[in-house]
Design a protein around this nucleic acid. Structure first.
Lengths: 344, 344
DNA sequence: TGCTCACGTGTAATCGATTCCATGGAATCG
DNA sequence: CGATTCCATGGAATCGATTACACGTGAGCA
């Protein structure tokens, strides 16, 4: 139906298509007269430029792609929102893709974006399933295609790609310090999947914080989840059955925390009395919980904006300055004196 | 960097670009020999077809767009996920756009999609701010552009567009019946913004359910929120101060419910004792709450799939069969005998 | 006055694929 | 065996914009 092209506009305005193009893209010099005529004609005919044709010739699409690992995780949807807003301000559309924590879907999306010749890519990289030496073949192709690329949240250390990430060291130090002051000795950690660099970072920062606070690190107190609610629930059962009877738990993301807290509620565990809980990611549900849950949070809005800015640097052939955000610890009533151990 | 075109592939394979194209798109008949040669050459050179060029000529993009009103609302991110998965199965990419409950952003996104010539649009329409006679000008242009379009979740009654929506009448009837059986008389409703058809539907179904159960509808017990957490919090305060001292509340979506429940927790109201609560949208946080919150939920996965299917019908110039999903009521421990009224 | 320069404009090439059309050779049929 | 059909293929047009290049005109300068 929309058969109105720039030629139609040009004809209606009585100029050539070159002039019409110049007016509509506002680049070269044009006379006030033809500018007026072309604009009137375009409006009149309801001209909608064909983005395909435009970017075929001009080799830019004004589109970037954002690949996240799970749209339904509020952490990533917040990030996506921040990226999208910032990109919009810079006049670019954002393709949001969903890897579903699955590197096959990731590759599919990346292939589609490559084929669409997006101007740049912001990726929360999926790790490598087993073969941790080589990032996925598709990721290699992206890199060798020369498409501007930055990583956000997670990174792949094998590749030398600008990354925007967060450091939880300071926050975990504070958190562990607080727990120790409350008398906790056995602190469990419900972590994320090892293929995510954030999960590894949080885990090692946890160990470092224990040591820095003079507590012993205990390998058996680490549970490997997958950042989803179901694994948080599994972790919650695991905590209850653990022979060291941990009195405090730190959980690596919000969905896992919600899963775990649901199990503890059902089991009659009193969080903030029997068990102290700290969760990564500040989401509204943590404040709804009774008692409210202490959190370690990232400034996702800033991270999203920083990722776009870094990408713009790469697109302009500049070296983006590396940036690391510091997470913040917020103590709340979910922290209590270590006293009774949770019954099974 | 990626200067490898189909001509390069053709040359490397020793055939013409026409043959190469035929092999790679798998349409017309090609000999086994050239098929083999072309495929080898393409793989060898790392050929990535240029989607712009392809769709410029073939006038299809294998891309649909989904416009939702808030990515950070789990309701919509679930819907987006369902749509995306279903579209992927049908070989189409999905552009997810975010209206932010704002019709200016909606229009911006729609314009971009129109310009990109997406094959179809699935839209959760924003209402009209004041001028409820005319849907936004951009929406009119979409319609007159002939781009296949379906509405999902919400609808715009002024336009005759296929819509996939949910009916909460039955579920609300059950819910109100249950509340009445528990002795509740004054039931408050924290609703959504009037510009959303779902908010209107839920509100009128609420009134109808009251009447059907022989309770009187009371206008002053309706609070107009905006589907976000902050307005839920406002609504919660409003409930506490209400002179009719409602003993039960129904909340129109999950973010508002979380906002409201946070306020009530802070105020020391015992949900499931002092106050009975039912929330729309089944999200994990509702089960985490102590006590778990009764919900009225939609099958978003099916709705998302149905939307894609309906869109495919429209794209094939067929009339999609209209479909309405029935929401489901799940009673939980947040419902209690009406007894004490909540103190202020 | 003559020359250069800048500016607005039109013509035509171009981006990278798909696809219409013509062609030559093989296969099939009477 | 000659005619017809079918199939694989190459040449060239095409999609709708941008843009390199050329041209004419009027201003500025010596």
């Amino acid at each position: 139906m929309n058969a109105v092209t720039i030629k139609d506009v040009a004809q209606a305005a009585g100029v050539s298509s070159a002039t019409a193009s110049r007016v509509l893209s506002g680049h070269s010099a044009t006379s006030a007269e033809s500018r007026e005529k072309v604009e009137a004609a375009a409006k009149n005919l309801g001209f909608v430029p064909n983005a395909q044709a435009r970017s075929l010739r001009s080799t830019k699409t004004d589109t970037i792609a954002l690949l996240i690992s799970d749209v339904r995780n509020p952490y990533f949807s917040d990030l996506a929102h921040a990226v999208e807003q910032q990109a919009l301000e810079a006049g670019m559309m954002t393709f949001i893709g969903n890897a579903n924590e699955d590197s096959e879907q990731q590759d599919k999306f990346l292939a589609a974006m490559l084929s669409r010749r997006v101007d740049g890519l912001i990726v929360v990289p999926q790790g490598l399933d087993e073969d941790s030496e080589h990032p996925s073949e598709m990721m290699q192709r992206i890199v060798s295609s020369g498409t501007p690329l930055v990583f956000v949240d997670r990174t792949l250390p094998q590749l030398n790609i600008p990354s925007i990430s967060a450091s939880s060291a300071t926050a975990l130090n504070e958190a562990i310090g607080e727990l120790k002051a409350l008398g906790h000795q056995n602190i469990a950690f419900l972590g994320g999947p090892a293929h995510a660099s954030t999960a590894r970072e949080r885990h090692s920062a946890f160990d470092a914080a224990l040591e820095a606070n003079g507590l012993t690190t205990e390998k058996s107190l680490h549970f490997a989840g997958d950042f989803r609610a179901a694994s948080g629930a599994d972790g919650a059962h695991w905590v209850l059955r653990h022979q060291l009877e941990p009195t405090a738990v730190i959980i690596a993301d919000a969905p896992m925390a919600i899963g775990a807290l649901t199990v503890w509620r059902e089991a009659g565990i009193r969080v903030g009395a029997d068990l102290s809980v700290i969760a990564f990611d500040e989401v509204d549900a943590m404040l709804m919980h009774h008692p409210p849950i202490a959190t370690i949070s990232h400034d996702l809005h800033s991270m999203g904006r920083a990722a776009v800015t870094a990408l713009q640097s790469v697109m302009a052939d500049k070296e983006p300055e590396p940036q690391e955000f510091i997470s913040q610890f917020t103590p709340r009533a979910s922290l209590a004196q270590a006293s009774v151990t949770p019954g099974a």
